[in-house]
Design a protein around this nucleic acid. Structure first.
Length: 480
RNA sequence: UCCUCCUUAGCUCAGUUGGUUAGAGCACCUGACUGUUAAUCAGGGGGUCGUUGGUUCAAGUCCAACAGGGGGAGCCA
């Protein structure tokens, strides 16, 4: 007989039919009631076993043992559930020695402890919910772009370009590290390396995505990204996933519209498809915040926050306006900011948080940043006063997370792009392939990058990025 | 990388001004239980107090270094 998923049994009220269910024991009460979970949904299925069941079998029904149950779905006599399965036979598929098993759910294991047993943490309610939501968001991303005719472009993971320069990169090599071939001047001879040149893991698929956009009009990437930065925070990973759409003929405003529609679409998808998971996560957040003083707790519940984001237009302000708001703010006048504010600064976390969490109290898109603090490929704004040059950049700042999207209209004018690259000491010869798009049929275009894990943080209400990726890679940690 | 806090049983945590044999709840083991919902009840086992070095008659407790972790910052997505 074919296995029925627990989700399918629980989501309809039908009874009086036979099923085979398989899963892992969450709890076993009164030598009679098994709470069974197969990961298909948040809730457990109650399995009621016969009191005459072989004592040797009963003994093996331990927390997290894998079992198969053949039985009949019936209305439950108990209060906690509508239906339950009355078992006619039960088979132990995989024993779980309770004495050695490191995960005891009744002990309310901490998130930090669960991180140390990340190979088992999927079996908890919290991580079950988080990773089902993560899946839905990933799926919704593909659906959103597919519905709009975007081509999913797989940009390379191994790349020779480190032109973006920003992040430290992970080197990819097959050379012997203890005795690499050397040039006469003593430097490593990468001509001997696998690719015949120095290569590293990608820090962004954007430049390649732009090449695709110059043929398909709209493309997106969704893949792993690697940064060897020694940043140890709740918002950074050495290996993370990034979504980067790139659209020909879009200007900055169209870019913002796309980003806002996109974020709202995937949040809506999660609300529509993961209601139980999000309700659980909402409750989890309430419990977590009980530890905090009143004034540090969220003003809205998780689901309430997501619905608020859906129902309100993101605030759009220029960098110049944002700086003015900060300069006029009570926080600034009372000298509450640790870092000073003036036109030209790269805004600090405290400034971004003030704008998002105190001033506007909703997601904010900040545009037209000073050119000096932004990347070479961003389109230079026309008509700027000397010393006040800006670019068509846009960052979306989310409450509690900070920067969730960074994007811009791209500089499509060859001479201006080359001039900027020279100013920033980016080698134009090596980047001939990028500049070729500006030589041959260049058009205005725009795109952005969205950090997937930061989006998952926002939607799940989790607070540490290591808890929203199955196996986090961070400085000094590549376990599992 | 910087600042700060933490590390005591499988988990979560107490442990007083340094002073006998280091505690609790849960988990685990044994037994009881025919409608449980984190089941309940009775009994039992379980510790190199993160590591190394130092101060002291005496260190879980004081000092230093190191390791791991949390929170904040920088960098960023």
């Amino acid at each position: 007989m074919q296995r029925t998923k627990i989700k399918d049994i629980l989501r309809n009220d039908a009874t009086d039919y036979e099923v085979v269910v398989k899963g892992w024991v969450r709890s076993f009460r009164n030598n009679q009631f098994i709470a069974l979970n197969d990961g298909s949904c948040m809730n457990n299925l109650q399995v009621v076993i016969d009191l005459n069941t072989d004592a040797d079998i009963v003994k093996r029904i331990t927390s997290s043992a894998a079992i198969s149950v053949h039985g009949k779905v019936m209305p439950s006599q108990g209060k906690g559930q509508k239906v339950e399965v009355i078992a006619s036979s039960i088979e132990i598929l995989g024993d779980c020695d309770a004495e050695k098993y490191p995960l005891q759910l009744k002990n309310k294991p901490s998130l930090e402890y669960l991180r140390e047993i990340a190979h088992l943490r999927f079996r908890t309610n919290t991580f079950g919910a988080v990773f089902r939501v993560r899946h839905s968001l990933a799926f919704a991303i593909h659906q959103f772009f597919n519905e709009r005719g975007f081509v999913y472009l797989h940009t390379p993971i191994v790349t020779a370009s480190d032109a973006e320069g920003a992040g430290e990169t992970f080197r990819v090599t097959s050379l012997p590290f203890d005795n690499p071939p050397r040039n006469e001047d003593g430097s490593v001879d990468f001509r001997e390396d696998f690719f015949g040149r120095s290569t590293n893991l990608t820090v962004s698929g954007q430049l390649e995505a732009e090449l695709g956009a110059m043929a398909f009009s709209e493309v997106y990437t969704f893949g792993p990204t690697f940064r060897a930065e020694n940043s140890n925070t709740a918002r950074h990973l050495a290996e993370f996933w990034m979504i980067e759409p790139e659209v020909a003929f879009n200007d900055l405003v169209a870019n913002m519209d796309l980003a806002e529609d996109f974020i709202k679409y995937i949040i809506q998808y999660a609300l529509d498809h993961n209601r139980e998971d999000l309700e659980f996560l909402t409750q989890r957040l309430v419990e977590e915040e009980k530890q905090k003083p009143q004034n540090e707790r969220s003003e809205m519940g998780l689901i309430e926050k997501l619905e608020f984001v859906l129902n309100n237009k993101f605030e759009r302000v220029t960098y110049t306006e944002a700086i003015d708001i900060l300069l006029q703010s009570p926080a600034y006048k009372k000298k509450k900011f640790q870092y000073d504010v003036s036109w030209g600064i790269d805004m600090q976390s405290e400034h971004e948080r003030y704008l998002v969490e105190k001033h506007f109290k909703k997601p904010v898109i900040v545009t037209n940043y000073p050119a000096a603090i932004k990347a070479f490929y961003m389109r230079q704004d026309d008509g700027c006063a000397p010393g006040k040059e800006t670019v068509a950049a846009m960052d979306i700042l989310a409450p509690g997370i900070g920067e969730i999207v960074g994007g811009s209209q791209r500089e499509e004018r060859l001479e201006r792009l080359e001039r900027r690259m020279n100013e920033m000491h980016i080698p134009t010869e090596e980047m001939y392939w990028y500049l070729d798009t500006r030589r041959f049929g260049t058009v205005p275009h725009a795109g952005f990058g969205l950090g997937f894990e930061r989006m998952v943080l926002f939607v799940t209400g989790m607070t540490n990025i290591r808890d929203v990726i199955p196996f986090p890679r961070t400085p000094k940690n590549a376990e599992f």
